Simulated assay, not measured.
Amino acid sequence: MLQLKDLPDKAILEKFASRYPEVDINAVMQFLHLLGVASELSVGLDNFLRRYDLLQGRWWVLILLMREDSFISSPSKLAEQSGVSRATMTGLLDGLAREGLIQRIVDEKDKRQTQIKLTKKGQQKLDEVMPDYYQRLGQLMSVIDKEQGQVLMDVLAKLKRNLTIFD
């Protein structure tokens, strides 16, 4: 993911506004700041997960499997839930299987049908990561109080509903 580390200031955006008069400088600054923080959060999460020999994609697959009552799901459902292509999911599953964190279960009647199961080793990996993750997440979010947290959730929900403008 490309990270914009040098966000433009108001003077630079005013220069752009002279060329593109429809620019709302405050909206652009808010958007870029949000995008920058989201990018830094993603990098920070990857750095944290790397300590456990994981990256976000593989970690999310393990979490999605743990959410299932039977700890079993299909590759296509996992791809849909995580917002990646089936080919990308296959690559994630290949790596997890090599490490013994998941197991592929082939349907005896229809060999084309495969289910993915979280293994005991996969659950142990999550049991190792999650307490530290939740503790760090608590520390990160402790800088905002309950009311600010609700405002944040409301604002993010509004932005999410408005994302169709990029379609």
Results as ranks from 00 to 15, higher is better:
Met1Asn: 06
Leu4Asp: 07
Leu7Gly: 03
Leu7Ser: 06
Pro8Val: 06
Asp9Cys: 06
Lys10Val: 11
Ala11Cys: 03
Ala11Pro: 01
Glu14Ile: 06
Arg19Met: 09
Pro21Ala: 14
Asp24Thr: 05
Ile25Phe: 13
Gln30Arg: 15
His33Pro: 02
Gly36Val: 02
Ser39Pro: 04
Glu40Met: 13
Glu40Phe: 15
Ser42Leu: 10
Leu45Pro: 01
Tyr52Val: 01
Leu54Val: 01
Gly57Arg: 12
Trp59Leu: 08
Trp59Gly: 00
Trp60Lys: 10
Trp60Asp: 12
Val61Thr: 05
Val61Ser: 00
Leu62Gln: 02
Leu62Asn: 06
Leu65His: 00
Arg67Asp: 13
Arg67Lys: 15
Glu68Arg: 15
Glu68Ser: 13
Asp69Asn: 13
Asp69Gln: 07
Ser70Asp: 15
Ser74Tyr: 09
Pro75Cys: 04
Ser76His: 15
Gln81Lys: 12
Gly83Tyr: 07
Gly83Ser: 05
Ser85Met: 03
Ser85Thr: 13
Met89His: 07
Thr90Met: 07
Ala97Asp: 04
Leu101Phe: 05
Leu101Arg: 02
Leu101Thr: 00
Gln103Leu: 02
Ile105Glu: 05
Ile105Ser: 01
Lys109Ile: 09
Thr114Tyr: 08
Lys117His: 01
Thr119Ile: 01
Lys120Trp: 07
Gln123Thr: 04
Leu126Asp: 02
Asp127Gly: 04
Glu128Thr: 13
Asp132Val: 11
Gln135Asp: 10
Leu140Asn: 04
Lys146Val: 07
Asp154Thr: 07
Lys160Arg: 12
Lys160Phe: 10
Lys160Ala: 11
Ile165Ser: 03
Ile165Tyr: 10
Phe166Glu: 04
